[in-house]
Amino acid sequence: MPNDATVPYEENPTHMIIWLDVSIGDPSRYQHLKKAFSSKSDPKHETPVELVDADYDEILRVEGPLPIDFEGVYFLLAAFTNIESCINCFAQNQDKRIFFITSGSLGRDAVPIIIERFKETFTDPVTDEPYMSIYVFCHDISLQIHQALDYRDYIQIFNFDADLLSRMIRDIGDYFLTESKRLLDESPPNNAAAYHRLSWTKELYYRYTKMEKVSMKKELGEVDQLLEDVEEELRSSSDEDD
């Protein structure tokens, strides 16, 4: 693995999660759930919080406010209870790749507005293909199908938090892999930035395999090969500079 001399800086991930939900958006509620989503989707977090642990049920039963302590974690999640604040967050973070979670009820009004105003946020700038990175989190999927049909190129629907989290982790990993390949295609290749994104991809893919109990041997093999190639290029560049 390259040392500090060959990888001169370490970037912060440029993605974030925006969550719109009357209950989950309340700062005093569902803090463990939000902490799990934030840390699990952050590839730089060395000890991500598990979605379910021994005191999870008790945490969700607490009605009063709980102190929020993210232990210095770079917080990648912003949660809101109303559409206006959510839209303001989109407007202030147009430089980021946003993964948007919404409840079914608020999403009915929010999704059309957000797609109209921030369509580029959900569109690949190179291929012009839509990103399926709007996640509707609801109790009954059948009630959301009609809404989703109008935005089927952008929406995925879930009724279980673990399924949503694992899918989003995979999607974020795929995003970093695509970004790394494009950085390597630049002239000259941006090897340092590509290295970080490949490392993030590998970490997120590992988390996905653990959550879903599936193999990603082919995908991880591709990432490992790219990392090996980039490391060799970085070593060569470092030797030339010495």
Rank of each mutant, 00 (worst) to 15 (best):
119 K>G: 11
107 G>R: 09
136 V>A: 01
131 Y>A: 01
107 G>C: 10
96 K>R: 14
103 S>H: 02
120 E>T: 15
140 D>K: 10
121 T>K: 09
124 D>N: 10
119 K>Y: 08
118 F>W: 03
101 I>F: 04
105 S>R: 15
105 S>P: 09
127 T>D: 05
135 Y>L: 06
127 T>E: 06
103 S>Y: 02
103 S>K: 02
144 Q>V: 13
104 G>V: 11
116 E>I: 04
118 F>P: 11
138 C>T: 09
100 F>V: 03
144 Q>L: 12
132 M>D: 14
112 P>V: 02
115 I>Q: 00
116 E>F: 05
99 F>D: 04
133 S>N: 15
114 I>G: 03
143 L>N: 13
101 I>V: 11
142 S>D: 15
127 T>R: 03
116 E>K: 11
137 F>R: 09
99 F>R: 02
135 Y>E: 03
112 P>H: 07
131 Y>D: 01
120 E>C: 10
138 C>Y: 04
143 L>A: 15
139 H>R: 15
102 T>L: 05
98 I>V: 04
107 G>S: 09
113 I>C: 09
135 Y>W: 05
134 I>A: 07
141 I>S: 03
116 E>M: 07
109 D>N: 11
138 C>N: 05
115 I>A: 00
98 I>Q: 00
126 V>R: 13
134 I>T: 04
113 I>T: 14
104 G>F: 12
128 D>Q: 14
119 K>C: 07
104 G>S: 12
140 D>F: 10
101 I>K: 01
136 V>L: 05
136 V>H: 02
117 R>C: 07
131 Y>G: 02
127 T>M: 02
135 Y>D: 04
98 I>H: 00
142 S>T: 15
101 I>R: 01
139 H>V: 15
136 V>M: 04
123 T>G: 01
139 H>L: 15
128 D>W: 10
126 V>L: 13
144 Q>N: 10
135 Y>M: 05
140 D>W: 08
131 Y>R: 02
137 F>M: 12
142 S>W: 14
120 E>W: 10
108 R>W: 09
127 T>V: 02
133 S>I: 08
124 D>Y: 07
134 I>Y: 05
137 F>Y: 15
103 S>T: 02
119 K>S: 08
111 V>Q: 00
97 R>L: 11
106 L>T: 08
139 H>N: 15
130 P>V: 01
133 S>E: 13
109 D>C: 08
122 F>A: 06
110 A>D: 01
116 E>N: 11
129 E>G: 08
132 M>N: 14
112 P>R: 06
140 D>S: 12
135 Y>N: 05
130 P>G: 01
117 R>D: 09
109 D>F: 10
119 K>L: 09
119 K>H: 09
126 V>S: 11
100 F>T: 03
128 D>R: 14
104 G>L: 12
96 K>C: 10
122 F>P: 05
141 I>W: 01
103 S>I: 00
114 I>V: 05
141 I>N: 01
116 E>H: 07
140 D>I: 11
95 D>V: 06
113 I>S: 11
109 D>V: 06
120 E>A: 14
107 G>D: 07
134 I>V: 07
119 K>P: 07
113 I>R: 13
106 L>C: 03
121 T>Q: 12
120 E>K: 14
112 P>G: 04
123 T>M: 08
101 I>P: 06
128 D>H: 14
112 P>C: 04
144 Q>D: 12
